[in-house]
Amino acid sequence: MDFLRPTTLAEALRAKADNPDAVPIAGGTDVMVELNFDKRRPKALLDLNQVPELATWTEDDETLVLGASVPYATIIRRFADIAPGLAMASRTVGSPQIRNRGTVGGNLGSASPAGDAHPALLAVNATVDLASVRGSRSVGIHEFFTGPKRSVLEPDELIVAVRVPVATGPQQFAKVGTRNAMVIAVCSFGVALHPKTGSVGTGIGSAGPTPLRAEDAQLYLAAELEGRWNDPKPLPDNVLREFGQLVGAAASPIDDVRGTADYRRHALSVLARRTLAWAWQDYSSGRWAA
């Protein structure tokens, strides 16, 4: 097995173009497991850990551009204010060791329906920056996933960064697992309220072939919130419930070792109800200007 160690992004893209079979490795928390279990025998590994462009971030008033190999631990520590949903999701990932190594770029690279970053990114309409020697492109997160563990990433491309819009309203993330730490999501849910545009974002994890958005739920809630933004009293129970129902209905889960489809639908509706109530309560605190 070859081990390629580019030290600049340009070198990395060149190496990927020359070796489209090379498997990029960032934190290695997915790649090394696959190698250990002999699920993959790549001809080459493309180590991204020496590529400074991928390990940095920039932020302005509107966007956090998060390098693909920034680990979860950094996200939790630094970006809880501007990307609260992603930071909350990051906090649920694995264990301290995994959060020190694991990255959002790797989560996207694996494109597992259970990846915890995905619902949070969906809820804020993040954009994924991809690059190859042929050039760069940006793909909306909702177009990124094409199937279970499949994405639009071309063989010669790398994920460079994720553009996360700076939060202008409250965000929440919650994940169900059958133990209280170190657990793969049975299902997960992210919600983001966007008071400036009067819109609502959602993301569902582990309850379909790809991470999903609950579009009907988003539209329903945006309509319900119209007129409430300036006078945020607690949301009536029926609104919370209906939102929960619609989120559950948006999922297309299966029965597997981790849980039944029925449970996933049910749990998603509970998570949606609760996370919305927390988000709205946060909004009511006056912290977020409409």
Binding site: Q172, A174, K175, V176, A181, R274
Partner: peptide, 16 residues
């Protein structure tokens, strides 16, 4: 959160 069912997965703040 660590003292609640679900832990830091943030599934409840006491509800239910």
């Amino acid at each position: 959160l660590r003292d609640l069912p679900g832990g830091v997965s943030n599934t409840t703040h006491g509800e239910g």
